[in-house]
C-alpha cells in the first residue's frame, strides 16, 4: 500500500490516543463493568475494548480502501493481460 501522509498520520494518532491513553478501555470499564461482575464478563469486555482500540487505528485505512481496491483490480488485469500476451497465459 502506497504511503499516504494524511491517512497514516491519522491512523497513528488514533491508535496512539485510543491505545496509549487507554481511552476505550477506560470508557468500557466505566459503562459496562461493575465491581461485583464476574471475571468472565470483565475479561470479555476487556477483550472487546482491546479489539476496538486496535480497530479504531484502522479506520483511516478502511475509509481509503475502496479506491485502493479499484487500483489493485486494474493492476491484476494488467498483469493477466501481459502474461497472456507474451507467455500465452502461462
Amino acid at each position: 500500500m502506497k504511503f499516504s501522509p494524511l491517512r497514516d498520520l491519522a491512523g497513528g494518532l488514533i491508535g496512539a490516543f485510543s491505545g496509549g491513553v487507554g481511552l476505550v478501555g477506560v470508557a468500557a470499564k466505566k459503562f459496562f463493568v461493575a465491581a461485583d461482575d464476574s471475571f468472565t464478563k470483565k475479561f470479555l469486555i476487556g477483550l472487546a475494548a482491546t479489539a476496538l482500540t486496535g480497530g479504531a487505528a484502522l479506520l483511516p485505512y478502511l475509509v481509503t480502501a475502496p479506491g485502493q481496491q479499484t487500483k489493485a483490480e486494474l493492476a491484476v488485469a494488467r498483469s493477466s493481460i501481459v502474461g497472456d500476451r507474451y507467455d500465452g497465459g502461462e
Partner: peptide
C-alpha cells in the same frame, strides 16, 4: 489471442511494469 513477439528488452520492461502492481 496469439502470443505477441517483440524485442525481448521491451518484453522485460513491460513485464516489470506489470509486476509492479499499483506502483
Amino acid at each position: 489471442m496469439a502470443v505477441v513477439h517483440v524485442d525481448p528488452r521491451v518484453v522485460t520492461a513491460v513485464k516489470a511494469w506489470a509486476a509492479a502492481g499499483v506502483e
